[in-house]
Simulated assay, not measured.
Amino acid sequence: MNQALSNHNQVKLVSSFEELVKTDFQGENNALCWHRNSEGDFKEIVSKLELKENITEVSVEDLLELKLSAEGNIAREIILNDMQLLKDFGAQPSLNLLKNYDRDDEFSFISTDVYSFHVDRSPVLMDTFLCTYFGASSDIISNSEAEQKILIPEIREKLKELHNNTEQSFEEFLTENFFDLHYAAKTNAKPINLGNSHLWRLAVDHSDQAVLPCIHRAPVENKDEYRLLLIC
């Protein structure tokens, strides 16, 4: 994975948290990866956490209460350290035990859930951080390999039909309903999987952002397996 990522213009590898947060996005680069060797037993942590809803937020206290093996404790310390680094940076990390996200089935012609390629929009210039410690991991795709769904003619026509019953401008309608955040992969596109244990920083959609926002999607979960995801 390391070699494959280092050859891709979209992704830049870094070797520390400080480098992750201080490196500027430039050109085609809109994803930074603190690439780390997998250590510890995250599966043990997942097996001992209780899933209360499809997405269950795990607190620091929940983690500290777990009775773990030496390898499980290594994994816990990695998570706790990541959370503290992000908090000290000013972010608000959330650790989630995840069975699945809700699916968007309101419209047959356009999906707007997190399983669809999309970008994140933020009212302030604060990028998305995420790390999948266990389970299926997210994909990103270069902006040149994706097309905004609202620009695809057949989808745009159907959206115009929906818009006819509103008093908003068409562009406001698209933004208010988050249709403009979603993308379709072009033929022969090659998504990049983010893997496990690596902490990523993805560029968001913001007027002061120097680069295009990073297009990404949540993975289809592996059968009978929960995900452990840190995100903010």
Score class of each variant (00 low, 15 high):
1 M>S: 14
4 A>T: 15
6 S>C: 04
6 S>Y: 10
6 S>A: 09
8 H>I: 01
9 N>M: 01
9 N>P: 05
10 Q>M: 12
11 V>E: 13
15 S>R: 12
16 S>T: 14
19 E>W: 08
19 E>Q: 14
21 V>W: 06
22 K>P: 00
24 D>N: 11
28 E>P: 05
30 N>G: 02
31 A>R: 07
31 A>C: 07
32 L>A: 12
32 L>K: 04
33 C>R: 02
34 W>A: 10
35 H>W: 12
38 S>N: 11
39 E>M: 13
40 G>T: 06
46 V>I: 07
47 S>F: 11
47 S>N: 08
48 K>L: 12
49 L>W: 03
51 L>N: 10
51 L>W: 11
51 L>G: 07
53 E>C: 07
58 V>I: 11
58 V>W: 04
59 S>Q: 07
60 V>A: 14
62 D>G: 01
65 E>R: 14
68 L>G: 02
69 S>M: 06
70 A>F: 08
70 A>M: 13
71 E>P: 06
73 N>P: 15
74 I>H: 00
76 R>G: 02
77 E>T: 15
79 I>D: 06
82 D>P: 09
84 Q>F: 14
85 L>P: 13
85 L>F: 14
87 K>R: 08
91 A>H: 05
91 A>L: 15
92 Q>F: 13
95 L>F: 06
113 D>C: 02
113 D>Q: 01
113 D>F: 14
114 V>R: 11
114 V>A: 12
115 Y>P: 04
119 V>L: 08
121 R>T: 10
121 R>F: 06
123 P>K: 04
126 M>E: 13
126 M>A: 13
128 T>N: 12
129 F>S: 03
132 T>H: 06
132 T>V: 11
132 T>S: 05
135 G>P: 09
144 S>R: 06
145 E>K: 05
145 E>S: 06
148 Q>H: 06
148 Q>C: 14
153 P>E: 10
154 E>R: 01
155 I>Q: 09
156 R>H: 02
158 K>H: 04
158 K>T: 01
158 K>D: 00
163 H>L: 02
163 H>G: 01
164 N>R: 11
168 Q>G: 06
168 Q>T: 13
170 F>A: 01
171 E>P: 03
172 E>P: 10
176 E>M: 09
177 N>Y: 07
181 L>V: 11
181 L>C: 00
181 L>K: 13
182 H>Q: 10
182 H>V: 03
182 H>T: 04
183 Y>I: 09
187 T>V: 12
196 N>W: 04
199 L>D: 03
199 L>H: 00
201 R>F: 05
204 V>I: 06
204 V>S: 05
204 V>Y: 04
205 D>L: 03
210 A>K: 15
211 V>S: 14
213 P>R: 02
214 C>H: 00
216 H>E: 02
217 R>S: 08
219 P>C: 03
219 P>K: 02
220 V>H: 03
221 E>K: 15
225 E>V: 10
230 L>W: 08
232 C>S: 15
232 C>L: 06
